[in-house]
């Protein structure tokens, strides 16, 4: 496993909720990343943001890791959940909230 893959794999496995995004949770630098961060904040989750703009290797590596061509990418308990569209759709239908609680993650403001 290449260095970057190992780094990503470690981030995904050691954080319950981690989002690979453009920018940081405080300063998202892309509308789609900003939407996912808003949803995670609304649900009161504590999560880690990995800024793919800080390192080109991560930016490409994450796309290979998940076979998903775009950023942001949300991982819960080591599993790829989706990009911005899927997270928004799951949030609106309440599926994201139930998925999180099933994985033992406390969700505030669950609909």
């Amino acid at each position: 496993m290449s260095g970057i893959n190992e780094f990503i794999d470690n981030e995904v496995k050691t954080n319950d909720v981690v989002v690979f995004m453009k920018g940081t949770p405080q300063f998202p630098q892309c509308g789609f990343s900003g939407q996912v961060v808003q949803i995670l904040d609304y649900l009161g989750l504590d999560y880690k943001g990995v800024n793919v703009l800080a390192d080109q290797e991560i930016r490409q590596g994450i796309k290979d890791y998940s076979n998903w061509p775009t950023i942001p990418q949300l991982y819960v308990k080591g599993e790829f959940v989706g990009g911005c569209d899927i997270i928004r759709e799951m949030f609106q239908s309440g599926e994201l909230q139930s998925h999180l609680t099933e994985k033992g993650i406390t969700v505030r403001g669950a609909a």
Binding site: P69, T70, G82, D85, I86
Partner: peptide, 27 residues
Amino acid sequence: TRVQQHQMVYEALKGNMGGVLHALALQ
């Protein structure tokens, strides 16, 4: 699953997704 469905669409777009095509909101 939704992720698999979207991946099928991305495969059909043969690498344009995320490159030439910056944003494609999928349903």
